[in-house]
């Protein structure tokens, strides 16, 4: 199977994502330039982290109009798997592929550290090899990761079980003190109602090898491969 890693001007986690799926998992992977419109032959699209378009106006705001995003939207609408990580999550929100918006972190600082997230759903393509309530040790690195949605949207997300990850303690306790950025309901990752589009602020691609301090991120990419091919890697 083949992953497509989209490269926007200002992406800086594209190589890490490519490495994680190709080198660590041994899957096919190719870069997709932001001017491209052809996603033929790709099974899963990764929107990587970084500072696309310099975060001008709002993080992720200008990317929406790039040629590749039209193709990504169509890909998602046809049921294709799309995972947006960090800036990729911000892009999915700005493009309307996921509901809500990102605000500046509550402490107004760029936060770069390992945190913990609890797996809330295991029936998505991105979490099918995880256990419900499992805690992942995974790094975050962002300035605008403070997830916001109006009350109605939030209620819908919760009712549909679209919250996939929440910030928590190392033991899985979800509480405000383990919320690094002020996100509503400790939300670290959500999916669309169909479950084929996931956005998450933490960086699974940065924790796929023991050398990097955690291998928990690998489980997310392994889930995708398992979901698409039925094969464990």
């Amino acid at each position: 199977m083949k992953f497509g890693v989209v490269v926007f001007p200002g992406s800086n986690c594209d190589h890490d994502c490519h490495w994680a799926v190709s080198h660590v998992l041994g899957q096919g992977a190719e870069y997709v330039w932001y001017q491209d419109r052809d996603l033929t032959g790709l099974d899963c699209i990764i929107l990587p982290g970084g500072f696309s378009y310099g975060d001008y106006l709002r993080a992720g705001a200008l990317v929406r109009f790039s040629p590749v995003m039209g193709a990504v939207r169509e890909f998602a609408e046809n049921g294709g798997l799309v995972i947006g990580i960090c800036n990729g999550f911000q892009i999915l929100l700005e493009a309307g592929l996921l509901p809500g918006a990102m605000m500046r972190n509550k402490n107004l600082r760029f936060i770069c550290e390992y945190i913990h997230i609890r797996v809330e759903r295991t029936d998505t393509p991105f979490t099918c090899l995880l256990k419900e309530g499992e805690v992942l040790k995974i790094p975050i690195a962002h300035m605008d990761g403070n997830y916001f949605a109006d009350e109605t949207t939030l209620a819908t997300l919760e009712a549909n079980g679209q919250v996939v990850f929440r910030y928590c303690s190392p033991r899985g306790e979800v509480a405000e003190e383990y919320n690094p950025n002020g996100s509503l309901e400790n939300i670290a990752g959500i999916c669309n109602s169909e479950g084929n589009v996931l956005g998450m602020m933490p960086h699974p691609e940065r924790c796929c090898e023991a050398l990097l301090g955690s291998e928990d991120g690998k489980k997310i990419f392994q889930s995708i491969v398992y979901h698409l091919s039925g094969v464990g890697v």
Binding site: L57, R58, A61, L62, F65, L93, E94, P99, G100, A101, M103, F148, A149, D150
Partner: peptide, 8 residues
């Protein structure tokens, strides 16, 4: 369409 994000 672009300058303001209607969510926030």
């Amino acid at each position: 369409k672009l300058l303001a994000n209607p969510v926030i």
